[in-house]
Every structure is written in structure tokens, then in C-alpha cells.
């Protein structure tokens, strides 16, 4: 019978990943190469995030895994069950109870604290990839702090559409000097990254890069003085909990295109529903 170490990876590998993470924390937003391993889930499913979580998780941790804000989406369930199997740690859906939150495409609505780590799954760590596909050239731009191409791209959006056209993965400036991809979270979530009390770790398994934002670090969404950053959300109300401020998913109800909105953050939504039920 084949057996596995706690959290799947061997201790040596976990140590090497933690060393890379320390480096990442020391240079906020900077992409650190690391010896990413093949994981038992495919690349693109969150192998970077899984490796980061596996490297920092301990027996007393409580893990929450979300995809698109929800604990019950197929990918989140598969990753959570992987860690349950490989570590035996407690899996929770409550944001406030979790010590580690692994996420794909969202930041929970509930503000995070100093006692928490949020691990982002990152498909493309290089924020300039759409403009400069050649990675060595992009790296030189980072080294020189030369982000002119990105500003020109935003400027072109404004001249063509009257607004910045990137709805998700809107680039951020970390610590005032390093351009970073926030991962494909909606622009709505970007402001939550700024001076967040929790440690933010980012893992890109396929591209073999890690990066980090230490607690209370400045994270500014790229914009212009006369065109300030605009975090967007669907103009609607959650049909389950009535929230008018949370990020919403659009659900199509029938073949006639009838639609309604629900919170993307399922924990936030169900807590609000519970609170409503108990208030007289």
C-alpha cells in the first residue's frame, strides 16, 4: 500500500517551498521561482495554491477552500477533500473560523485578521503577460520598474471605451514599486488586498512562481488621477440574503432568460440568512 507524508509533499519539498515563501514575503509582490512539483490534481486546478497550503499547514489548522467564493463548488470540494485525506485537519466553511483560506477567484466578504493566511491560486503570475508574452523581457521591465506599457494599455481602454476594460485580474502596485497580478479576482475584490491584516500568499504551480503580500502592505489598483479605479459589481440585490453590497453571481432561471442574483460568497450569504431567521 502506498502511503503519503502529512499534507502529501515530503518534508524537504515543503521546506524548500517555505524558503521561497520567506523570500517572497521579504520582497512583496516579487515573483519567486520555486521547484513546483506535479500534484495529483491537474495544472490549472490550483496546484500552486495547493503546494503553498501544503507547505504551511499544520495539524491544528482549520482550512477553508473556496472557488468563485463558494465552498460547495466542485473544485473547492475536491481540494478540501484532498487536504482532509492528506492531513486530517478540520475543514470549515466559516471564514472567521479558518486559519488558512485557499481561494480561487475571490476574497471573502468577511474581513480577514492577523491570525489568518489567505492562499490564492494563480494561473498567470506575470501581470504583463498579455502585453509582453516573452517572460525574460517582462522580467527586465520589472527590474527597471518600467510599467509604461501597462499604463498605455489602461489609457487606450479609456480612450476607446471611456473606462478601463479589465473586469478581473486588474493589476496592482505593491509597496509602491512592484506591479503584481492579484490573480483573476474581480476588480471588486482588489481594495480588500490593501493593508490587509492577513498574510497573502500566491502560488502558480504550472508557471513555477510564488509571491506574497505581507500584512498591512499597501496594494494600490493601477489607475489615473482623473480616472480613478472603479471596483464594479452587478447592480442588484442578493435574492437569498438581501445584500446590496456583496459581489453577486447571475443565475439563469429558465429558457426565457429570467435571471436573479445571489451572493458569490456562500458563507457570507448563509450567515446573513441565519441572522435574518433568528431576528424577530
Amino acid at each position: 500500500m502506498i502511503s503519503y507524508n502529512f499534507a502529501y509533499l515530503d518534508e524537504q519539498t515543503k521546506r524548500s517551498i517555505r524558503r521561497a515563501l520567506l523570500k517572497a514575503v521579504a520582497v512583496p509582490g516579487w515573483q519567486i521561482p520555486f521547484g513546483s512539483r506535479e500534484m495529483p490534481l491537474p495544472y490549472g486546478w490550483g496546484t500552486g495554491g495547493i503546494q503553498v497550503t501544503a507547505s504551511v499547514i499544520g495539524e491544528t489548522d482549520r482550512l477553508k477552500v473556496i472557488d468563485q467564493g463558494a465552498d460547495d463548488t466542485t473544485n473547492a470540494v475536491a481540494i478540501a477533500s484532498f487536504f482532509k485525506r492528506m492531513t486530517g485537519v478540520e475543514i470549515t466553511t466559516h471564514t472567521a473560523d479558518a486559519t488558512i483560506i485557499q481561494t480561487r477567484h475571490r476574497i471573502p466578504e468577511h474581513p480577514l485578521t492577523e491570525n489568518q493566511i489567505i492562499v490564492y491560486q494563480v494561473p498567470q503570475p506575470e501581470p504583463l503577460w498579455r502585453l509582453i508574452p516573452e517572460r525574460p523581457v517582462a522580467m527586465r521591465a520589472h527590474a527597471l520598474g518600467d510599467y509604461g506599457t501597462m499604463y498605455v494599455k489602461l489609457y487606450e481602454d479609456i480612450t476607446r471605451f471611456g473606462r478601463v476594460a479589465s473586469a478581473y485580474e486588474h493589476p496592482v502596485m505593491v509597496g509602491g514599486c512592484v506591479l503584481m497580478s492579484p490573480s483573476p479576482i474581480p476588480a471588486f475584490d482588489n481594495p480588500k488586498m490593501d493593508r490587509m491584516p492577513a498574510l497573502q500568499l500566491f502560488g502558480a504551480g504550472r508557471e513555477r512562481r510564488l509571491y506574497a503580500v505581507p500584512p498591512y502592505t499597501s496594494v494600490r489598483s493601477l489607475d489615473f488621477a482623473d480616472h480613478p479605479f472603479h471596483p464594479g459589481r452587478a447592480d442588484g440585490t442578493c435574492s437569498l440574503c438581501g445584500s446590496t453590497t456583496s459581489y453577486l453571481d447571475e443565475i439563469i432561471m429558465d429558457d426565457h432568460g429570467t435571471r436573479r442574483f445571489v451572493c458569490s460568497d456562500t458563507d457570507y450569504c448563509s450567515e446573513r440568512q441565519d441572522a435574518k431567521d433568528t431576528t424577530p
Binding site: 500500500m1 500534484m39 495529483p40 468563485q68 466542485t74 475536491a78 453571481d249 443565475i251
Partner: peptide, 24 residues
């Protein structure tokens, strides 16, 4: 692109969410 939609989501026979570990 939609969390839910008419006809629903249906995984069918897929490896999408399986863990790539050797079977016995």
C-alpha cells in the same frame, strides 16, 4: 460562465475532480 442554468450542470464520467493517486 453560469453557476446554474436551465438543464443544470452535469459532470458525467469525468476525471475533472479526481485525485491522481494510484488505485489499488
Amino acid at each position: 460562465i453560469f453557476k446554474d442554468l436551465p438543464g443544470g450542470q452535469r459532470l458525467g464520467p469525468t476525471t475533472d475532480y479526481s485525485h491522481r493517486l494510484f488505485e489499488t
